[in-house]
Simulated assay, not measured.
Amino acid sequence: MRMIKPPLKHVHILVFTLLSLVFSHTLFAASQFPNTYSYQASEGSPQAKIGDISWLQGYWQGEIWGGQAEEIWSAPLAGSMMASFKFAADEQVNFYEIITLFEQNNSLVLRLKHFSADLKGWEEKDQYMEFKLVKLEKNIAYFDGYTYQLVSPDELHVFVVIDDDGKKQETKFAFKRNKSR
């Protein structure tokens, strides 16, 4: 019996297809952006405790959109952390955020609520934005469209996929630790 070899081109296509299937599963549903992942319900969230990201605590400041941003994270307490975020430009506060990070179902969930400068909520009264944990590495926490990366003890990068009227883009916030507080 004679073996028939497929053309080399077909072998490459088959290998590429198989590798794509394997890596698409192991890449934790990478989004269309380089620094964020998308949550897949079929994959679920990895096990994690709040202490796994205690490196996030501190007072962080940076510049973006022609203004200044600050994010202040509390130390872990009772399975959770909280933060406040403020963005100001031209000596005027544009908006605030209240952020909670807590343990749920043996993993972590990030919740966020926006407020105007006069503290009027952007989301409805009982609504908030929620981001489930997708992947956790040393000094990097990937939530659904939201990534925190401790670049050094004094530098934090936050990548957020922002939806502006249907146009999504990944935005980078580069923060430095403010040690004066």
Results as ranks from 00 to 15, higher is better:
3 M>F: 15
5 K>I: 12
5 K>D: 07
6 P>N: 11
7 P>D: 11
8 L>T: 14
9 K>S: 13
10 H>T: 09
11 V>Y: 03
12 H>G: 13
15 V>M: 09
18 L>G: 09
18 L>I: 11
18 L>S: 08
18 L>R: 05
19 L>V: 05
19 L>H: 03
20 S>G: 15
20 S>R: 01
24 S>V: 02
24 S>E: 06
25 H>R: 13
27 L>H: 14
29 A>K: 15
31 S>W: 10
32 Q>S: 14
32 Q>D: 12
35 N>E: 06
38 S>G: 14
39 Y>S: 11
39 Y>H: 14
39 Y>Q: 13
39 Y>A: 11
39 Y>N: 12
42 S>V: 00
42 S>L: 01
45 S>C: 05
45 S>H: 05
46 P>V: 03
46 P>R: 08
47 Q>G: 09
48 A>H: 01
49 K>P: 03
49 K>L: 13
49 K>A: 11
51 G>A: 04
51 G>I: 02
53 I>M: 03
54 S>E: 12
55 W>H: 00
55 W>A: 03
56 L>N: 02
56 L>K: 11
57 Q>N: 12
58 G>E: 04
60 W>E: 10
61 Q>G: 09
61 Q>N: 10
63 E>A: 15
70 E>R: 15
72 I>A: 07
73 W>C: 07
73 W>Y: 04
74 S>M: 00
75 A>G: 10
78 A>D: 12
80 S>N: 08
81 M>N: 01
83 A>P: 09
83 A>K: 06
84 S>A: 03
84 S>P: 00
85 F>I: 00
87 F>Y: 08
87 F>M: 01
88 A>S: 15
90 D>I: 10
90 D>N: 15
91 E>M: 14
91 E>G: 06
92 Q>G: 02
94 N>P: 00
94 N>Y: 00
95 F>W: 08
96 Y>K: 03
96 Y>D: 01
98 I>A: 13
99 I>M: 09
100 T>M: 04
101 L>I: 03
102 F>V: 05
102 F>L: 08
103 E>Q: 14
104 Q>V: 07
104 Q>G: 03
105 N>Y: 12
105 N>R: 06
107 S>K: 06
108 L>M: 01
109 V>A: 01
109 V>Q: 02
110 L>M: 09
111 R>E: 08
117 A>C: 00
118 D>A: 10
118 D>L: 03
119 L>W: 13
120 K>D: 04
121 G>K: 12
122 W>R: 11
123 E>I: 07
123 E>A: 07
124 E>K: 15
125 K>D: 10
128 Y>R: 10
131 F>R: 08
131 F>T: 02
133 L>R: 06
133 L>A: 04
134 V>R: 15
134 V>T: 12
136 L>D: 00
139 N>P: 00
140 I>E: 04
141 A>R: 05
143 F>I: 04
145 G>M: 01
146 Y>W: 09
150 L>P: 05
151 V>W: 05
151 V>S: 09
152 S>G: 14
155 E>G: 07
157 H>T: 01
159 F>Q: 02
165 D>C: 06
165 D>Y: 13
165 D>S: 12
166 G>R: 13
166 G>W: 10
167 K>E: 15
168 K>P: 02
169 Q>K: 13
169 Q>D: 09
171 T>Q: 08
171 T>C: 00
172 K>V: 09
177 R>G: 08
177 R>L: 13
178 N>P: 10
179 K>P: 08
180 S>D: 14
